[in-house]
């Protein structure tokens, strides 16, 4: 969990955005198991004495919709996560360079450039 704390420290001003992405990710984790639930219902139906074809087809339709939604969700989530990632590392680099300027030059002989 230390890792999460560290990333929030680095995020600085972008903290809220990062929180938003994190919670979307958590939701994604929940949504991801939706297909398994539907699968469970399908199995139940198949093993029941009298198989109701219509019900299975409805479930399949729900499954397809779920996949569709998940993938669209994933697409935008991945995009915004990446965007945030790039923005973050950009901000970090800028603030790092600003920080370097404020440190005494002695710092650079203690630490190899690179």
């Amino acid at each position: 969990m230390g890792m999460f704390r560290e990333s929030f420290f680095l995020a600085g001003n972008n903290k809220n955005r990062l929180k938003f992405i994190f919670s979307l990710m958590a939701l994604r984790g929940i949504v991801k198991i939706l297909p398994l639930l539907i699968l469970y219902l399908v199995v139940l139906e198949l093993l029941s004495a009298r198989v109701d074809l219509g019900k299975i087809l409805v479930l399949t339709a729900i499954l397809a919709t779920a996949f569709f939604v998940i993938n669209i969700w994933d697409h935008y989530l991945a995009l915004s996560a990446m965007k945030l990632g790039h923005k973050l590392s950009y901000d970090i680099r800028i603030s790092l360079s600003d920080k370097l300027r404020k440190l005494s030059l002695g710092f650079f002989s203690r630490r190899p450039t690179g």
Partner: peptide, 19 residues
């Protein structure tokens, strides 16, 4: 990258609740 691990973690926990 990191958030995706979070999502895996959540998946596993929700799944175990369902179990």
């Amino acid at each position: 990258m990191e958030p995706f691990f979070l999502s895996s973690l959540i998946s596993a926990s929700v799944l175990s609740i369902f179990f």
